[in-house]
Structure formats: structure tokens, C-alpha cells
Design a protein around this nucleic acid. Structure first.
Length: 801
RNA sequence: GCAGGUGUGGCGGAACGGUAGACGCGCCGGUCUUAGGAACCGGUAUCUUCGAUGUGCAGGUUCAAGUCCUGUCACCUGCACCA
């Protein structure tokens, strides 16, 4: 019989669909399991072979959980707002909603062809007004709690297109589209106070099961550092407040640096004799991103000395110069630093370049050669009342001294910045606020949500950098919800991150008209039990959605502080040349082709077999054929099924395999789980026959990986019910070990021979057997045995002299 | 620059500190065939056989190191308006 995957796959997909086999039940008395994958952005290119890696992995988890008796929620949806759709729409003069609809249809049919067990009755789409109604509702709650505020922020602005650009659209400082110069322009933007949650976002990581590198990356991104805020006096009379993690080195501060955007520059306009130079420098700096700044600084430190104002070091009253330099970022700390060249590498480089004094205050290095940054070993010197103290003692002492004088205090600082929430774009959720001359910013009444995107003729960016919505007069002009006076709507839209920050909650109760989801549904389904996604989402999406979940917890919508109990990550699938797949490299593999030529089961199996799930792996057109061959062998195995007269030789291999596959799936070691099934297949073919029960066990184990084929074989064996909803096999622990093992015998740590011994063999017997071995004898004879090591079931090592 | 990660045969990758290379691909040989780019069987780390050498490189800890420690090199990913 031929393995006709095309018909088999179609047949079972239709049946699963018809029977709604994978729909999650609303019976909240059952034990639940919520498996989640990041919902895709439905791009015009269609599904990428990378998508199914994550989807298949959690599909396997979801399928296994169903077989273990859980009520499983494994949903899918569309994160459909976004820049590429908008740009495509502008270029081709098609409305973004039309583009989105088309892309979603394609994605959906592609996903369906893979036999993924999603509950399609819970499909969601972030661009659906019934969905974004609740995105807007959450924003209003944030606004009401004071967590949304307006702030002047610099944005990328193309001087030729006259529009605001995303960082991504800026390539080497010029506009990606027209190649013109991009400058930073200050604009008033909506911000969300994620920083208010910084500490909790760190602390609560202790309670969740995230892979370690995700945790560390989040912690580093939030970037908590304990230091001090210190006020420096100036000859102009104003103070400069700085943040430092090294208050202990205060006596070594020989100059100060403020960010080019620092407010004091304007304040000192009349006192600064070189004001023009400073402004020119600021304009140069404005062309660079923060990233470029810190990078370029490394190669070539730049800066301008402020002429006319000097600072005063509060610990010793000495006057020191002030510089502006772009290695100090306005967005971190206070936008001003004290520079201690002896003990900070960047300050040291800058001091060398501008020929500034370097004063050692921690002994232990040679500050003429390089900055000494060790905080563990040194003792304080040249520091008056701190002399002789350890660095850590000096920190405490100086903070006490500063706070006694009222010019400084301990301060916890975070690298994390507030979330810029405004976009000057059409294709996003309208921000549901109205500006009234009398009442300021007023939220749209909740009864009027969703605030729909107006259907406009032109959704192209305006030439003044405002959102396209600003040109829709009858939408912009409205009345104040409080006083009824004429008022204007906010025309900025939300970033794509908004819809994806809470989508998993909507899956719990996707058709609810009166709440984002019912309290009962959220209580039952949340938290997500297992969330898999890409490492590239670790610092943004994962942090943003944790922030929103915490906020919703605070306002009593959610019962759990953390949205995700467990987070894992998959590696990228690269092109066959080992490079990232991209059109320009010409190494893109289309999943449709694979499904057509080799079948969905082969595709699924290969993506799981390709390598370590967490690491990236190159696609191979030849390797995938090995997976097809394996499935054909499995199909062929049905001819080896015998009703009677079958030996029990396969007992141990089967029990071993059930144990290994069960454990490997939990550890996401899909590649070794499949390898074990392949090895078992080899055993079965060597054996020449197997029982019907064994065949049944085999297909049950393989079912999560290759569900269509296994359903088909199940039916051939006489099964009427869906194999996908049958019971996961159990194993007999006592039958998972062979009675006899072959273990290595080493002499001085080098393998010299092997011996076969019983599994429960004791040390004396084992060593006796080993010493009886001809090869071993030759190594022992004439030598003294110093030590004998025996690790049961593993190794014998005899140390001789 | 900052942060995170990776490095093992010809290739993808396996290895609770305990026989390095499971499983698969590829390759070599064979069987069957008019034919094979099908299927099946056997072999396959390197070196000149005995034996020795092998997990990016250099040290260290240990009876024993791919695995632990120190240093070093190379490559990959993210960096806040891409998703």
C-alpha cells in the first residue's frame, strides 16, 4: 500500500474540522491547559517556514495534554495592525483592511494545511473593532490611573518625505524610501509609565518558569542599578543633579558632562559665551540615534566645553569644567554625569582626548595607563574622610554625608524607559481621547467604544508629521464628553504592541460583548501554562504584556500577577546556506511547496527533528527526505502486525521509548524523541513483527508529531474514534532497563576495554570481571593498583602506577 | 558600545562529570531490477596497520572534562517607532 499523504491529510483535516475536535470546552470543572504561541503578523509574503516550528512544537504539547485528559486551549489569531501593511496599502492604493483580510485568509489556509490543532472558533484579529474596543478600553483605564501621559519626545523625521519614520525605516541616518537626511524632531507623544512597574517586573520573575536567558535578558533590559543622586553647584547659581553608581569616587570627579538636550543649556543661554558652538553640536548629535551615539563615541569621543559656567564639586568645593557630549544620554538617569576618569573607561577616554586631570581615588590600578574599574579590591585614597575605606564602605559613608548635607541621596535607577505609545500612522487603534480647551484630555466615554478608524480616502502620512487622521476634519472635530464644547480628537494611533499586549486574555472568552473577557473565564484559563515565542520578543512584547497584565491585576480584572507561567523560545530556521532566509538572499523556502511535495506530516516531523529546538538551524532539502522515508517505514509497519505468535522481545524497547518520548516532549527535546521513535522502528523491522497493541502504542506516541498518518493507521487497525483524543500511553518502569549492560573499563582514565555485566552488579564482581579481561590484564600486570572506581551501569576506572 | 547566545565528523545534530559521534542526511559497497534519482542489506571521526589523536584555542580542577573554572579567539541575535 502506498503512503498517499495528500488524501490522508485532507481526509483527517476535514474530519477534525467537522467534529470541531480541538475546540476548548467551557466546562470550568475540568482541569485546564492553556498553550500559547505568538500570533503572527499576517504579512504579504505568507507563512514563513519559521512559523510552524513554534506552532508545531506547542501543537505537540497541546495534543499530548489532550491525550492526558486536560481541557486544552490552543488558540490562534492575527496581530494585524502594522507598518508593512500600511506601506503596501499606500503604494498600491488599496485600503489596509482589504490587504489585511487577504493576508489573513492566506495565512489561515496555510496553517490549516499543517494540521495544527488550533481552536479556530476562538480566532481573533487585533484590527477587528470588536477586539480593539477593548485595547482602547485598557488604554483609558491606564489614562485614568495616571499611567498615560504626554511628553516631548524626539522622533525620526525625514526632511524630504516630511513624515515621521520608524527606527526601522532609517538606514544609516537616511530615509529608507527616498535617501534624504533624517533628523530628530521633537514631538509631543503619549507615553505609558512602564517604569512604575520596573521593580515588580524584576521581582515577579522569581515566581515564573521562564528559560534562564529570557529572565536575565529582561533583568538586564530593566537595568536596575543602585547609586546616588548628587547635586553639584555651579558658578551660575543653578544646581546640576547627576546620577552615579559610584558615589564613592566623588573626590575623583574632575569635570562634568551633560547631554546635548539638557534643559540647563537653554537656561544658561546668556551666560554661555560659546552658546552657538553648543547648539551646533546639539544639532549634529540630533542626527544620530542613541545606539549610534554610544557606538561612535567608542571610536571618536566628541564634545564641547561650556564657556562661562563652571560646576562646583560638593565634596571639596573645587571648580570643575562642564562639557556637553553625546555619550551622555538625556533619557537615562538625569541626563548629566560627574566624570571620574580614573575609574570609568568612557570618562578616561574623554579626559585623555580633552587633556583633563585624572585623579586616582581607589588604589589598586595604574590610572595613567587605563581606568581602574574594579570595585572589589581597592581602598580609597585622595578622598579626605573616605581614605582607607573599602569601596562598599565608602559608598555608604558618602551617601550618609550627602544626605546629612541635603545635597544627595541614595537612588535606585532603571535603564528601562517609559513606553512611547503614539504613532503618527493610520493603521493602528485610534487613541480614544479628546482634547477640550477647558478640561484638557478627556477619555471617550466607554459606551462609545470602539472608537472606529474613520474610513478615509487617503491614509498616507501628512506632510507636517501629523497622523493621517488629522486631515479627516469631521472625525477630528467633536465635542467634549464633559461639557459638550467643541473639542478635537487625538489623531495619533497606538503602536502594534498594544493589541499584542493582552490578546491571550481575549482567547479565554473571545465573543464577550460586555467585557474584555468574563471574570470566570479569566479565572479558569489564566495564567497561560506554556508560552512559546522568539527570543526577539524577550525585551519588548514580553515586557509590555507582563506590564499590562500587572496593571489589569491591580484594577481587579485579572487574578494572576503574571500572565505566563512558563516561557520557552525557539531558534530561527535559516536558509540552506546557513544565512537568515530573505528574498534578497534568494534562500526562502515556501511551506506550501513542502506540504504539496512531501506532506504536512513530513514538514512537521522535519521541523521538530531539524535540531535543538532552542538553536537556529539551516534548512536542508535532503534531510527532510529522511523524515518522509521514516513515515513511509511507519506506514509499512502495518504489514508486520501479527495477531499471535509474536515474541516479547520488543517489550523493553517499547517501555523505554514511551518513557523517553514522554519526557523529551516535556523538555522540548523533540529531535531526540523522534530519534527514539526511529530507533524503535529499526528494532521493529529487525524483529520482523509486532503485536497490534504495540502498533497502537507506536502510533499514539507519534500522533502529536504526525497526526494525519497516525489517524489513518489507527483507522486501518479498526479504530473508529479519533486517535488524537485517545489516551497517552503509560510505561512499566521495571521494563525500561536491560538486564545486562556493557560498560567501559578505563586504565588511568583511558578506555581500554569493555565488559558486559548485570545491571545490579556489585563493585567486587564488576572489578573481578574487568581484571579478567585480556586487554586489561596486559595493562595491570607488573603495576600497582592505586585506586579502583566503579560507577554502576557507567564505568570502571582502575588507576595504576 | 551594551545585553544575550553559539562553537563537536563531509552536513544537521546525540552525549545525568563516566565507552564522544545516538538518530538522520550524505557518501562508499552490495542485493533486486531493462533502468534507478525507488526499496532493502552492510560500511562510514582522523592518522601510516599495532596503536595514537580527536569536541574553536591556551591553561587549570578531577581517578575521569565536550560538560566545571580562568583566560582568549571567531561567529550569531537584540538594542526601545520592525514584528
Amino acid at each position: 500500500m502506498k503512503y498517499d499523504f495528500k488524501n490522508i491529510e485532507k481526509k483527517w483535516q476535514d474530519r477534525w474540522d467537522k467534529e470541531n475536535a480541538f475546540a476548548a470546552s467551557d466546562d470550568y470543572s475540568k482541569k485546564k491547559y492553556f498553550a500559547l504561541v505568538e500570533f503572527p503578523y499576517p504579512s504579504g509574503q505568507g507563512l514563513h517556514v519559521g512559523h510552524p516550528r513554534s506552532y508545531t512544537a506547542l501543537d505537540i504539547i497541546a495534543r499530548k495534554r489532550r491525550m492526558e485528559g486536560y481541557n486544552v486551549l490552543y488558540p490562534m489569531g492575527w496581530d494585524a495592525f502594522g507598518l508593512p501593511t500600511e506601506n503596501f496599502a499606500i503604494k498600491n492604493h488599496i485600503h489596509p483592511s482589504v490587504v489585511t483580510e487577504k493576508n489573513v485568509a492566506r495565512f489561515k489556509s496555510q496553517l490549516k494545511s499543517l494540521g495544527l490543532s488550533f481552536d479556530w472558533s476562538r480566532e481573533i484579529n487585533t484590527t477587528d473593532p470588536d477586539y480593539y474596543k477593548w485595547t482602547q478600553w485598557i488604554f483609558i483605564q491606564l489614562f485614568k490611573k495616571g499611567l498615560a501621559y504626554k511628553k516631548e519626545m524626539s522622533v525620526n523625521f525625514c526632511t524630504s518625505c516630511k513624515c515621521v519614520l520608524a527606527n526601522e525605516e532609517v538606514v544609516n541616518g537616511v530615509c529608507e524610501r527616498c535617501g534624504s537626511e533624517v533628523v530628530h524632531k521633537v514631538k509631543s507623544q503619549w507615553m505609558l509609565k512602564i517604569t512604575e512597574y520596573a521593580q515588580r517586573l524584576i521581582d515577579d520573575l522569581a515566581d515564573v518558569d521562564f528559560i534562564e536567558r529570557v529572565k536575565t535578558q529582561q533583568i538586564n533590559w530593566i537595568g536596575r542599578s543602585v547609586g546616588a543622586e548628587v547635586d553639584f553647584g555651579t558658578t551660575a547659581g543653578d544646581k546640576i543633579t547627576i546620577f552615579t553608581t559610584r558615589p564613592d569616587t566623588l573626590f575623583g570627579a574632575t569635570y562634568m558632562v551633560i547631554a546635548p538636550e539638557h534643559a540647563l543649556i537653554e537656561q544658561w543661554k546668556d551666560k554661555l559665551t560659546n552658546y552657538d558652538d553648543i547648539i551646533a553640536y546639539r544639532e549634529e548629535a540630533a542626527k544620530k540615534s542613541d545606539f549610534e551615539r554610544t557606538e561612535l563615541v567608542q571610536k571618536d569621543k566628541t564634545g564641547v566645553r561650556l564657556e562661562g559656567v563652571r560646576a562646583v564639586n560638593p565634596v571639596n568645593g573645587k571648580e570643575i569644567p562642564i562639557f556637553v557630549s553625546d555619550y551622555v544620554l538625556a533619557t537615562y538617569g538625569t541626563g548629566a554625569i560627574m566624570a571620574v576618569p580614573a575609574h570609568d573607561t568612557r570618562d578616561w577616554d574623554f579626559a585623555k582626548r580633552f587633556d583633563l586631570p585624572i585623579i586616582e581615588v581607589v588604589a589598586g590600578g595604574d590610572v595613567n595607563k587605563e581606568a581602574f574599574t574594579d570595585t572589589e579590591t581597592g581602598k580609597m585614597v585622595n578622598s579626605d574622610f573616605l581614605n582607607g575605606l573599602e569601596v562598599s564602605e565608602a559608598k555608604t559613608a558618602v551617601i550618609k554625608w550627602l544626605s546629612d548635607k541635603g545635597i544627595g541621596k541614595q537612588k535606585v535607577n532603571f535603564k528601562l524607559r517609559d513606553w512611547v505609545f503614539s504613532r503618527q500612522r493610520y493603521w493602528g487603534e485610534p487613541i480614544p481621547l479628546v482634547y477640550c480647551e477647558k478640561h484638557g484630555w478627556v477619555p471617550v466615554p466607554e459606551s462609545e467604544l470602539p472608537l472606529r478608524l474613520p474610513n478615509v480616502e487617503s491614509y498616507e502620512p501628512t506632510d507636517n508629521g501629523e497622523s493621517p487622521l488629522s486631515s479627516v476634519a469631521d472625525w477630528v472635530n467633536t465635542t467634549c464628553p464633559i461639557c459638550g464644547a467643541p473639542a478635537k480628537r487625538e489623531t495619533d494611533t497606538m503602536p502594534q504592541w498594544a493589541g499584542s499586549s493582552w490578546y491571550f486574555l481575549r482567547y479565554c472568552d473571545p465573543h464577550n460583548k460586555t467585557a474584555l473577557a468574563s471574570k470566570e473565564a479569566l479565572k479558569y484559563w489564566m495564567p497561560v501554562d506554556w508560552y512559546n515565542g522568539g527570543m526577539e520578543h524577550t525585551t519588548l512584547h514580553l515586557l509590555y504584556s507582563r506590564f499590562w497584565a500587572k496593571f489589569l491585576y491591580d484594577i481587579d480584572i485579572l487574578d494572576t500577577k503574571e500572565p505566563y507561567a512558563k516561557r520557552t523560545s525557539h531558534g530561527m530556521i535559516l536558509g540552506s546556506n546557513g544565512e537568515k532566509m530573505s528574498k534578497s538572499r534568494g534562500n526562502v523556502v515556501n511551506p506550501d511547496d513542502i506540504v504539496n511535495e512531501l506532506g504536512a506530516d513530513t514538514m512537521r516531523l522535519y521541523e521538530m527533528f531539524i535540531g535543538d529546538f532552542e538553536k537556529s538551524a539551516p534548512w536542508s532539502e535532503t534531510s527532510i527526505k529522511g523524515c518522509k522515508r521514516f513515515l513511509e517505514r511507519v506506514f509499512g509497519m502495518t504489514e508486520l502486525v501479527k495477531d499471535e505468535g509474536v515474541s516479547e522481545k520488543l517489550d523493553i524497547p517499547f517501555n523505554k521509548t514511551i518513557k523517553k518520548v514522554s519526557a523529551d516532549i516535556e523538555d522540548m527535546k523533540f529531535n531526540t524523541a523522534i530519534a527514539a521513535l526511529m530507533a524503535l522502528t529499526n528494532d521493529i523491522y529487525d524483529n520482523g513483527s509486532l503485536t497490534k497493541d504495540e502498533m497502537q502504542t507506536f502510533i499514539t506516541l507519534l500522533c502529536p508529531f504526525a497526526p494525519h498518518l497516525c489517524e489513518e493507521i489507527n483507522e486501518l487497525l479498526g479504530g473508529k474514534d479519533l486517535l488524537s483524543l485517545s489516551k497517552w500511553p503509560e510505561f512499566d518502569e521495571s521494563k525500561t532497563k536491560d538486564n545486562e549492560v556493557e560498560i567501559g573499563v578505563q586504565i588511568n582514565g583511558k578506555l581500554r576495554s569493555t565488559v558486559k555485566i548485570a545491571v545490579d552488579c556489585d563493585k567486587d564482581t564488576a572489578l573481578k570481571l574487568a581484571k579478567g579481561d585480556e586487554k586489561i590484564k596486559a595493562f595491570i600486570d607488573g603495576h600497582d593498583i592505586i585506586k579502583e572506581i566503579f560507577v554502576p551501569g557507567r564505568i570502571i576506572n582502575i588507576v595504576v602506577k
